[in-house]
């Protein structure tokens, strides 16, 4: 059974169609990268998968639970890092994680173990007692990640998890994602191409609310293939431009 099934998802805001018929499934062990320009509909799609926004049309099923019929059951199985890692600024990471553990009804030894595990995984031990609004951007992001992985969910949805982090922090977050990859179904969104190569084993290029192309790594680290386009390692950008702008190589050169 697929962990995440998305069927013909559509979301309109007034006359604007942000997501226009997106369908895909994600299995356990997959790290799926949403790749796309800003405003492509990546975040809107994630907001529908996590149950924040109701879709205009289409269906989201998480581990067999239809989000429209059993939202609470589906949400129990999801960990979500919203864009910008929002949190309650006046709380300390400890109080914030306790709150999330309360809402998720974690109790007893299990609760302690999960809290310790999440705190250790994102390495926020030193700042646990400082108000979140006094933390650096990197720590704030890690607090958001801790919240997302707290209940050790099978499904992780991370919206731009490394945006605004320094290279070391990016590396740490990517390592964490790779560590968790085998046991979970993970979707990350990004507009950083190297991130897809670094952590994903599958990727969708999304623009104007549609899935334009699906790709995956070639064997033996020989780069990535999107449809008929192949990209050498570290050369995803040309393929990305061609797919999202619809221009061929010769047209690009002429311009």
């Amino acid at each position: 059974m697929a962990m995440i099934e998305i069927e013909k998802l559509v979301r309109r805001f007034g006359s604007f169609t942000a997501v226009d018929g997106v369908s895909f499934t994600v299995e356990r062990g997959t790290v799926l990268g949403f790749l796309g320009p800003n405003g492509a509909g990546k975040s809107t799609t994630m907001k529908m998968i996590t149950g924040f926004l109701a879709p205009t049309a289409g269906r989201v099923v998480v581990e067999g639970f239809d989000l429209a019929d059993s939202p609470v059951e589906a949400k129990r199985r999801i960990g979500y890092l919203p864009e910008g890692a929002p949190a309650y600024a006046e709380m300390t990471p400890r109080a914030f994680l306790d709150f999330v553990a309360d809402v998720r009804q974690l109790k007893g030894d299990d609760r302690r173990r999960l809290l310790d595990q999440a705190i250790a995984r994102v390495d926020i031990g030193p700042v646990l007692e400082q108000p979140i609004d006094t933390l650096s951007k990197g720590f704030k992001r890690r607090v958001g990640l801790a919240q997302a992985i707290l209940h050790d969910p099978d499904v992780l949805i991370l919206d731009e998890p490394t945006d605004g982090l320094d290279p070391n922090q990016k590396h740490a977050v990517r390592t964490l994602i790779k560590e968790m990859a085998a046991s979970k179904a993970i979707i990350i969104s990004t507009h950083i191409l190297e991130e897809v190569e670094a952590v994903c084993n599958r990727s969708l290029i999304i623009a104007r609310g549609r899935v334009l192309s699906e790709g995956g790594p070639l064997p033996n680290g020989a780069g990535w293939r999107f449809g008929e386009h192949e990209a050498a390692p570290d050369r995803l950008d040309a393929v990305f431009r061609r797919i999202t702008t619809g221009k061929t190589e010769s047209q690009e050169k002429a311009a």
């Binding site: 924040f52 059951e73 979500y80 809402v103 998720r104």
Partner: peptide, 14 residues
């Protein structure tokens, strides 16, 4: 304003 509403309403609560 802070966007935490997105976090709150994607937790398993009604």
């Amino acid at each position: 304003k802070t966007g935490s509403i997105e976090l709150l309403l994607t937790l398993p609560v009604r």
